[in-house]
Design a binder for these strands. Sequence first.
DNA 1: TTGTAAGCGTTATCAC
DNA 2: GTGATAACGCTTACAA
Lengths: 338, 338
Amino acid sequence: MKIKDIAKLAGVSPATVSRVMNNNGYVKHDKRQAVEKVIREVGYQPNEIAKSLKNQKSHMIGVIVPKISTETASRVVDGITEVAKQHNYQLIIANTNLQIEEEIKYLKFLSNKLVDGIIMMATEVTAEHKKLAQSLAIPIVMVGQQVEGFTSIVHDDYRAAKLMIDHIIACGHKNIGFIGVDPKDVAVGQVRKQAYIDRLHEAGLSVDLDLIGIGDFSIESGYKQMEALLTRGKPTAVMAVTDHLAIGAIHCLHDHGLSVPNDVSVAGLGDVKLAKYFSPPLTTVHYGFKTSGMVAAEHVFDMIKQNQVDSDKVVIDFEVKIRKSVANLKTMRDLQSL
Amino acid sequence: MKIKDIAKLAGVSPATVSRVMNNNGYVKHDKRQAVEKVIREVGYQPNEIAKSLKNQKSHMIGVIVPKISTETASRVVDGITEVAKQHNYQLIIANTNLQIEEEIKYLKFLSNKLVDGIIMMATEVTAEHKKLAQSLAIPIVMVGQQVEGFTSIVHDDYRAAKLMIDHIIACGHKNIGFIGVDPKDVAVGQVRKQAYIDRLHEAGLSVDLDLIGIGDFSIESGYKQMEALLTRGKPTAVMAVTDHLAIGAIHCLHDHGLSVPNDVSVAGLGDVKLAKYFSPPLTTVHYGFKTSGMVAAEHVFDMIKQNQVDSDKVVIDFEVKIRKSVANLKTMRDLQSL
DNA sequence: TTGTAAGCGTTATCAC
DNA sequence: GTGATAACGCTTACAA
C-alpha cells in the first residue's frame, strides 16, 4: 500500500495525501477528512526508506559498541535510547566484539546516509579511526575515551581513581596493589594506572612493581592477577581498575583462605549493579554510564539540528561508593588494642 | 559522491559502476579496473538507503526489547548480532521500557519496509500484539514467551523450575517458599509458579500461601518479599523466580542475621554472570540466552530467505547449576550428630 | 559488453 | 487549495 493507492481511494492526488500525512501545506477540511479516513481504514503506514531517501535524513543514529552484553555498554545504550526516543529517532547498533577493523568497517558503513549521526564507544582509538571519522560528514561523538577533535563524553578517570586510592590510603594502607588492563585502552588502561602511581608518590609511598598486575577485562583475569600478586608481595589492599577484576580478586583471596577486608582490602571501579550486594559489599566508584549515553545523544542531536560539528569535552560525574571491601586499618588496630 | 559521479570520473555509465560494485553482469576487464580505481581513490560508499528502496530489502532486522540494560536482553541481543553479522545484516533496536503501547508502536514502525524481519522479546503478549503482528508481511520471531502462531524461541521454564524445586526437595526441605512475579509475564510469572506448585503436590507437600510472595523484577522487590515471607512463615528454603530476586532475598536474610544456606536456603533462576561469584555462590538454572538470540536470528533469516513464515516452537537448553546457596539438610543433620 | 531510462515511494516545486 | 512532475541514488530491463 503506497501513497498513490491512498490517493486513488480518497479521490485526491498523492501530493495531497503527503500534505495530510505531514501536516503541511493547505488542505481543505473535507479532503483531509477523506484522506484520514482511508488511511485509518487501510492502516496505511508510509515507507520509511522512501522518506529517508527523499528527505536525506534517516532519523536513525548509529551506535558502535565493543560488546553490548556488557553492563557498561548496555547502560550507555539505555541512556542513548532514552533521548533518542524524545527526538523520534531509532538506534542502529553495531557490535564490534572489540575488533578494530569492525569499528572501521561500521564507521564507513553507517555513514552512508544510513544514519544522521554516530555515537561510538571505542576502547582503543587509532589514527585510522580518527582520520576516517574526521572525513565523515555526519556528527560523531565518542563515549568513554577522549579523542582529539571530537566531542567526547568521558568520566574523570584520573580523579576517580585517585580518590579511590585516597580513600585506601586514608584507611591506613601502605602496601597497595594494583590490577589493571592493557594500556591500549587509554581511559581504563593508562589513566587509571597513572592516577594510582601519582597518588602513591604524592603520599610518599613507593610504587612496587611486584604489586602491579595487568590483565584483561574478565573476572578470571582478576583472579589470576591477584594470585600472581600474592606470590610476589604482601599487599594489604588492592585497587582493581574494574569491578569485575575486583570480584575476581576477591574470589581468589577467598580461595586462598584470606578474608576480605580483614586480611586484604579490595576496591573496584565502575559500580556494577550487583556490586553493593556482594559480601563484602564492594567499595568502588559509581560512573554515570546511562548519563554518558544521554549526554552523548543530546550532543549528537544538537549537532544534527545545527548541522555543524563541534568538539567539546564533557565530563560526567562520578561518586565514590565507600562500602565494606576496604578495611580501615586504624580502627582495626584500635579495636584490637581494646 | 554518487554513482553518477563515479561513472563520469571513470568514463563509463552508472550502470557499469553498479555492475562493478555488485559483481554482476559483464564488465570488460579494463573498465572494471578503471571503475575500481576511481572507487578506491574517492573512497566511494554507496547510499544504503537508495539501495534499500530499489531492492526492497533493507538488510536490517528489528529487535524489540523490554530493556536493553538487562542482562537477559543484552545476552539475547549479543546472540542476534553474532548471526546477523554472518548474514551481513544490521540490527535496529527498539527499547520499549516495558511499555506495551511502545511495543505496538515499534512493531508498526519497524515493519514499514524499514526492516526485513523482527525479533521480539515480549514480556506480556496481548491479543492486540498478536493481531498486529500477524498482519505484518515480514517474519517475526518471539523470544522468551511462546506465542501462538509465531515461531517462538523459549526455554523450558516449567521443567527448569521443576528441577530446581526437585533439587531443593532432594536436599530435605519441606517448607519451601516462593518469590515470583506478576502473572502477566507468562513464562516467568505463571509457568515457573505452576511448576513450583505442581512439584510440591507431587512430593506430597502442601502449598502454603503464606510462603508465596509476588514482587516485580527488581532486587529490592526480592528483599521485600523475603521480609514478608519471614513474618508469615518459617521456610527453610526459598526459590526465587529470578536471580535478582534471589539476591535480594539473600540480602534480606543476612540483614536479619540469618545465614544462607545454614538457616535458610535460597535458589534463583537465570544464572546471571555474577551468580557464581556471590557468597554463597548462587544455586540457580543457567539459561542459554545468547543461544536464544542466535537461534531466533537464524529462524528469521531462514524465513527471509525462503520468503515464508513458519511457526515452530524451539526449546533452548538449560542447565541446573548446583552451587552453595541451597543446603542439604540431611548432611547437615549427619554432621551435627557426629 | 555497455548505455539509456524507468522505477522503487516519497516530498517539494511549480503551475493552475 | 490542489495536482502533475521532477528528484532523492540506486538497479535492471531492454536496446544497441
